[in-house]
Amino acid sequence: MVARRFRHATMRDFPVMEQNYERARELMARNGNPTQWGHTFPKPEVVQDDIMRHRSILLVDGSGANERILAQFAACTGEDPTYQSIDGHWLDDDAYVTIHRIASSGLIRHAARECLEWALKQYGNVRADTHPNNKAMQHVLEGCGFTRCGLIQLIDRPTDTTRIAYQRHEW
């Protein structure tokens, strides 16, 4: 078994990351969730911005020319404006990191779980949200011990804005 590790993405990783997001969009659509990411989310400029701000984290194995990207996500520090209003209650008001745009390459099982567990070890207090139709991600979040805190409304789009909000705080 090849050791897995996490690292920050670089612009060299961008083409593979785009392929992984395309795969994720197709998978979500096939599994009854065609609108969460539609055909264009996340936009390339958002992914590039994540990379430049060192928010894009990759789960990889192998090394050099044999390295494979197994999964990716954005770890966004600071308050998320979307999370200021919730129909429900967050676990606390402590500083947190938000996990956004998680996607797997499909090369291994449970890659999203590994990403969430890594984020919990690194940051301790993690929030995330997902579409009500994204049963797979709800299952992963709940399987990792995240608490369903309520509903939030995305502020960066005009329609299909409701998301289920989750949090886990390692006390």
Rank of each mutant, 00 (worst) to 15 (best):
I51K: 00
G88D: 02
I152S: 11
R109M: 11
D13A: 01
A71N: 03
V2E: 10
L58A: 05
R5E: 06
Q19I: 04
E45F: 04
L151F: 08
E79S: 12
T162W: 11
Q138R: 13
G145R: 10
E22N: 11
R30K: 12
E45T: 05
F14N: 01
R5F: 13
R12C: 11
R12F: 08
G62L: 14
G145A: 04
Q138E: 01
A165G: 14
E142S: 13
L91E: 04
V126G: 00
R109C: 07
I51P: 04
A65E: 13
G106T: 00
G64Q: 10
V47M: 14
L27W: 13
E18K: 13
D129K: 05
P42S: 04
T98M: 04
L141Y: 05
H89K: 14
V140G: 01
T159H: 11
S63N: 15
G106N: 00
V46H: 08
G64E: 06
C76F: 00
V140D: 05
H139T: 13
C144F: 00
H8Y: 11
L141P: 01
D80G: 06
P34I: 14
I57Q: 09
Y83V: 13
D156P: 03
M11G: 04
T10N: 00
D87T: 08
H39S: 13
R12M: 02
I102M: 10
E142R: 14
L151K: 03
E18F: 01
A136D: 06
D87A: 15
M137S: 09
Q153H: 12
Q167H: 03
V126A: 07
Q72C: 13
Q167Y: 04
A119S: 05
H39F: 02
K121Y: 00
